[in-house]
């Protein structure tokens, strides 16, 4: 087919093994791509045909698992979600995500990130133990309540927002957009009662007040989650609670709800 015309593109790939190498090096490969080839496909092709020592991490190949986030032409992108020819560039520069420890080549270590995530208790906290042990029914939510947090629940934990954040660039203890977004997702859930328990981590010196609204997290997010919005709304809730003195049990006053136009807001093309 004429649409599958193959073009040769040069890849500059970051190579570094911390166990053996002193300094990283850039290695160049030439790959033939067509218009549907993603960066991940091209990297796998390099691994199969040219250099089996290249290390990459990937799983689902369809922007659901969040394993293959990397710096493609100096910007955080999912390798499986970026087509090579859409980048409009002769040389594709591929490097591991910034601000994470490198395991090898393009693979970064998220264990520090997930350790930090435990501080904000990323699960629903309830006090009605009897109901939890012997459930009598379901917890009901309105459409507005669901829309209040569903955007932030879409996070796939690819860690690209925390990598793009200029504050994480200097402060390794800063919780980062991904974790603050996670915290807000559970705080804004009407079923959750654990606002107070998360305050220690969120309201600390390295918590949500270190965000300065550079909005790079929202700019790189591949799933439309908008972590910057979550952090600002989190701060709004903290100010309302700490300064205006609204109790955390009155969730309706602390958390803005989504609004439903008409009966039920369906996305375009879903009708």
């Amino acid at each position: 087919m004429s649409t599958d015309k193959e073009v040769e593109v040069k890849f500059r790939v970051f190579r570094f093994n911390p166990k053996t190498d002193f300094v990283p090096r850039w290695q160049e490969y030439k790959v033939k791509v067509n218009k549907s080839t993603t960066v991940l496909d091209a990297l796998l092709k390099i691994k199969e045909e040219q250099d089996p020592t290249l290390t990459i991490r990937y799983s689902c190949r369809q922007a659901v698992c969040g394993s293959c986030g990397m710096m493609i032409n100096d910007r955080q992108m999912l390798a499986c979600f970026t087509r090579v020819l859409e980048l409009n560039s002769d040389v594709i520069k591929v490097a591991p995500l910034k601000n994470y420890r490198i395991i090898k080549d393009l693979v970064t270590d998220f264990s520090e990130l997930f350790q930090k995530e435990k501080q904000v208790k990323p699960y629903i906290i309830r006090h009605d133990v009897e109901e939890l042990l012997n459930p009598t029914g379901t917890y009901k939510q309105t459409e507005e309540e669901l829309l209040g947090y569903i955007q932030f629940a879409d996070c796939i934990e690819c860690g690209m927002c925390s990598s793009a954040c200029p504050v994480s660039a200097t402060d390794p203890l800063y919780l980062g957009p991904m974790i603050l977004n996670r915290a807000y997702r559970f705080i804004s859930d009407p079923r959750d009662l654990g606002f107070e328990q998360r305050l220690e981590a969120i309201d600390s010196e390295h918590g949500c007040w270190r965000c300065h609204f550079a909005a790079s997290c929202s700019a790189v997010c591949p799933k439309g989650v908008d972590p910057a919005k979550a952090i600002q709304l989190l701060r709004r809730a903290l100010v309302k609670k700490g300064v205006l003195g609204i109790s955390s049990s009155k969730k309706v006053e602390l958390i803005p709800m989504g609004h439903v136009k008409g009966k039920l807001e369906l996305p375009k093309g879903w009708e």
Binding site: D171, E205, H206, W209
Partner: peptide, 18 residues
């Protein structure tokens, strides 16, 4: 203080800076 906390990591460092 905000700039220094972001530049100098460590929980004790944050308290000392404050």
């Amino acid at each position: 203080r905000a700039i220094l906390i972001e530049l100098i990591p460590g929980r004790c460092a944050a308290k000392a800076i404050t």
